[in-house]
């Protein structure tokens, strides 16, 4: 008797999210990035469609980074002190397909930049680079509620991805994103129920599920990676089984977590592999968008993704 393969067919599908708008869609980006759309578990190409590869976004800040280790800083050279030059370097030299800009300089402890200045920075950045943007607040809720609407407006029509909305602070951001035609990042603290609840709250305000990306909150390799890994597997299984409120693509802040680890400060190789292996392990559990810091780690993970998708599209 022949061995019968065990094939799993799923009724659900992950929603498709497009980041960036070209001229014909009312924006000014040179390219767009599409994530999601799969109706198979990660990397099981024989069971369903996996129409889009995981994508790496380079993380940049609106100010020179404060607490990044030297191993990371030195990869960018002088450009890192000038956010616009830094952004251009990511695009021109490291071939970034999109950028994730963290507005750290707006934080009360890191310069307390005003909403007007933040908006001005986003406008300048949009004119300097033509890749789509992900815009992240500084993590100070009160300040983010002032600056993110300003950034959102400055980027109106560019179909950015903006975040992060959290359970007790999402309304202001949802309203801006709705008004300006962007998509939103919904962040939950390694908790599948909160992820689901937040997606429902956001879509109740009128933002469609096709404009939400889940940030499940991750730990780096050796720092609780397995919690996010399993939460993502559970959420993805629920999504594929038909739960639309969990069927959003995932975004993972890989670089931010990996470079906090003590290992990343031991040697540059250790740091790069720490970031790269954190990234690929979470690709295994379903991430669609990876925010990374070290250009060499990003390049290695890109090679890995190419290998995975070779002859599969």
């Amino acid at each position: 008797m022949e061995t019968q393969l065990v094939l799993e067919k799923w009724p659900g599908v992950v929603s498709t999210v497009v980041i960036g708008a070209k001229k014909e869609a009312g924006g000014s980006r040179g390219n767009t990035v599409t994530i999601g759309g799969q109706n198979s578990l990660p990397l099981l190409f024989k069971e369903g469609a996996i129409p889009h590869k995981p994508i790496i976004a380079f993380e940049i800040w609106d100010i020179a980074p404060q607490d990044w280790p030297d191993e990371l800083i030195s990869a960018y050279g002088k450009a890192i002190n000038d956010p616009l030059a830094w952004a251009e370097k990511c695009v021109n030299e490291f071939k970034a397909e999109l950028l994730c800009v963290k507005m750290q300089g707006t934080h009360p402890d890191f310069g307390n930049k005003s909403p007007e200045k933040a908006a001005k920075f986003i406008s300048l950045l949009l004119s300097k680079v033509r890749v789509p943007l992900i815009i992240i607040g500084s993590g100070d809720d009160a300040k983010d509620n002032l600056i993110l609407p300003a950034c959102s407006e400055a980027a109106r029509g560019e179909r950015c991805l903006i975040g992060c909305a959290v359970q007790d602070n999402y309304k202001t951001l949802v309203a801006s994103v709705l008004a300006d035609g962007h998509s939103i990042i919904a962040e939950s603290p390694i908790d599948i129920n909160i992820a689901k609840q937040l997606n429902i709250l956001i879509s109740d305000m009128g933002l469609s599920l096709e404009r939400i990306v889940i940030n499940p909150t991750i730990g780096a390799l050796g720092y609780g990676l397995e919690y996010a890994y399993s939460i993502m597997e559970r959420a993805r299984l629920a999504a594929l089984s038909g739960d639309k409120t969990l069927a959003s693509p995932f975004i993972c802040f890989i670089g931010q977590e990996a470079w906090k680890s003590k290992e990343a400060r031991v040697s540059v190789e250790q740091g790069i592999i720490w970031e790269a292996l954190t990234a690929t392990s979470l690709i295994q559990s379903g991430t669609d968008l990876l925010i990374m810091r070290h250009p060499q780690a990003a390049q290695k993970v890109n090679n890995y993704i190419e290998n995975l998708f070779k002859d599969k599209e």
Binding site: E269, A276, T280
Partner: peptide
Amino acid sequence: PYLEAMEAGAYIA
């Protein structure tokens, strides 16, 4: 070595 570690990681998972 980076690709080796990432691939080994996938098989372990």
